[in-house]
Computed example of a mutant assay.
Amino acid sequence: MRRIRWTGLPRNPPESSPGGRRQSGVFSLRTQKVARVESQADMQPRKTVQTIGIISRPRRSNLVVVVPPLLKWLEAHGIQSIIDEETASSLPDGSKGQTRERVADASQLLLVLGGDGTMLAAARLAAPRGIPILPINMGSLGFLTGFTLEELHPALDDTLEGRFSLSERVMISVELERAGKVIDNQRVLNEVVINKGALARMIEPELTIDGDFVCRYRADGLIVASPTGSTAYSLSAGGPIVHPTVESFVITPICPHTLSDRPLVIRDSSSVELKLSGNTESVFMTLDGQRGIPLQPTDLVRISRAKEPLKLIQPPKKSYFEILRSKLKWGEA
């Protein structure tokens, strides 16, 4: 397992994976080693971390109980804190917060208080900036937020002292091309979904992998998920659970008309292209379930592995399978 030392200012993006090759992403073997996805990390002492940004779930009532003692704890340990507007709105003293973009720009570590939705939003800010995230679960399921609220202060202390496990999660790069021009470029952690709007009718997305035509689906939609996203929407649509260290994408049709249209697992160095055929009325591209973009008949969606992974701090004594057992209630009657 690769060792990583964080110097407190992780601003340089890691080297990109060899995604430029055009071999088939379904059958061909990887010919070059790339960085492992999940790694243990050493961190230097606490003084290298001078600024922590706090991003919270909006309108969480218990933030007023959690945040004030947290800010005092950070101040007592010589750490400057920067809070976002959602966190500030929950405080009784009328404090003003910063936009989440400014919080991420000024921070060396992001502390996320919320559930998986808050984590997904924070991931899109942290990954391109090379900032680690320490996630504290204040939501319901919390697949990505591995620390409980009771573990907040011990987790902070361990992180600042370098006693933690760092998981580097693949981010998905998404380009939307319209009339020959790229009009949008995004990074997502879980999945990209092409799905129908309000009308109960099928859509017909065409899938191409590394220039090879795969098929034209007739389905309610199509999901392209990362290993992290394999336990989200893709799992609900019948896709497999993929360990975060498996360098892959999962392509899962949503309620396909043909039962033989099954999920595909391809390597993440592949270039995936999606375009619509047939009726394209009221079709959307949805990113991590948080942003919807209407698609037009000539649009082309390009999906690939992003250069910058998400650096996610996790409990050192909790394995991935322990989290699965806990969240999915495996083995319970």
Rank of each mutant, 00 (worst) to 15 (best):
S56H: 03
D212G: 08
L120D: 00
P154Y: 03
V67I: 13
T99Y: 00
S39A: 09
R169L: 10
S236T: 08
L71Y: 06
E332T: 12
S28P: 09
T258W: 03
D116G: 05
G229E: 01
S167Y: 04
L91S: 11
W6C: 15
T245R: 05
A122S: 15
P45Q: 05
P316S: 07
G142R: 01
V214E: 06
T298R: 10
E273F: 08
E75S: 12
R59Q: 14
R305S: 08
R169I: 01
Y233C: 00
R60W: 14
S269D: 15
A198C: 04
P256H: 04
G162A: 06
D158F: 03
L111Y: 01
L9D: 11
L144I: 08
K318R: 14
I54F: 06
T7V: 05
P68N: 12
R30L: 05
I209C: 09
D116H: 02
E15L: 13
E206K: 09
E85Q: 15
S107N: 02
V64M: 08
I82M: 09
L276E: 05
R36K: 09
V193P: 02
S17K: 08
Q44Y: 05
A200V: 13
D220C: 05
R325Y: 00
H243D: 13
A121T: 11
R201F: 06
M138P: 02
L113I: 10
V34R: 11
S28N: 07
T252Y: 01
I254P: 03
